[in-house]
Amino acid sequence: MRAISTAAHGSPGADRVIEGPTPKHAQLREILRRTVERELPPGAAIPSERELAERYQVSRLTVRSAIGKLVEEGLLSRVRGKGTFTAARRMELQLYLMSFTDDMRRRGMAPTTEVLRTSTEVPPAPAASALGIGADTPAHRLMRLRRADGLPLAVERGWYHAGRLPGFFDLDLTQSLYSQLDQAYGVRPDHAWQTVWAESADRETARLLGLRTGSPLLVFRRVSSSQGEPVEDMTSWYRGDHYQVTMQLDRNTPDSGHHSHYGGTR
């Protein structure tokens, strides 16, 4: 990252941090903001805290404060163990039935999946109701971390109908689940209710996604069925700095459509 020339902006302190009424971290933040917005492409690495501190003759605490604010604004993104990067343009979350694997491949990205936890146990009441099973009936529980081009993008925690999916954990759960359900059971999810809300990352989710605790997330709860029979109740936590949702709205009366009863739960 090169310093921005004073000639380009016409003010004598535009590319350096000076003594004055404006706090140094605020001055540096604006210098970095201009550089990111005007000179660096999405996904570009910025210099280390030490390099920036030496370049602008400020403390590393000042650098950390300036960068932290830009991370909060979504202009920069920290990747644990790798550094700080200009934020990639947000991907549009698709509001139709498609697996994460297929979606990332369609975008030209390489998807990978890490299985974090599996079990067969009695699910909480909302999941049991969504799957149409009795209160004491076990279901398959699956937790996965989804990455694209090596970057962690989503944590999935799902429940699956054990009666309709025997031998579920014999599948390769690191691959597209929807493709394998079709191949192994002839189960092809063809309908779903999806609920969307915003949430702050708890400690575990933040750690998995390489974020700070409290970072903004987009959360999707999807209850999927195949030929009218529910098979999946999955909640996905997506990084808020990498995703957005766009919807088409029509002018209808509030009671003109069917309302889902699958609300979000923690």
Rank of each mutant, 00 (worst) to 15 (best):
177 L>Q: 12
238 Y>S: 05
156 E>N: 14
116 L>S: 08
264 G>L: 14
4 I>E: 07
144 R>F: 02
156 E>T: 15
44 A>C: 01
22 T>V: 12
27 Q>M: 03
248 Q>G: 12
208 L>K: 07
135 A>L: 13
163 G>A: 06
151 L>P: 11
205 T>K: 11
65 S>Q: 06
224 S>L: 07
195 T>H: 14
217 L>C: 02
147 R>W: 05
125 A>H: 01
136 D>P: 14
158 G>P: 11
48 S>Y: 09
143 M>K: 10
166 P>L: 02
29 R>Q: 06
175 Q>C: 02
91 M>C: 08
114 E>R: 15
75 L>D: 01
49 E>P: 03
189 P>M: 12
119 S>Y: 00
262 Y>A: 08
103 D>G: 14
27 Q>A: 06
149 D>Q: 04
112 T>G: 08
7 A>M: 12
192 A>F: 08
91 M>Y: 15
206 A>L: 01
174 T>N: 08
266 R>P: 01
113 T>W: 02
126 P>L: 05
153 L>P: 00
50 R>S: 10
75 L>N: 11
230 P>V: 03
208 L>Q: 00
64 R>I: 04
186 G>F: 06
241 D>R: 03
46 I>R: 02
235 T>D: 13
214 G>M: 12
115 V>L: 07
22 T>A: 06
247 M>I: 10
215 S>Y: 07
228 G>E: 07
184 A>W: 04
199 E>I: 01
21 P>D: 14
205 T>Y: 12
219 V>P: 05
40 L>T: 02
147 R>T: 13
138 P>K: 03
39 E>N: 09
132 G>Y: 08
131 L>C: 00
24 K>C: 05
202 D>V: 12
103 D>M: 11
56 Y>L: 02
228 G>D: 09
232 E>G: 05
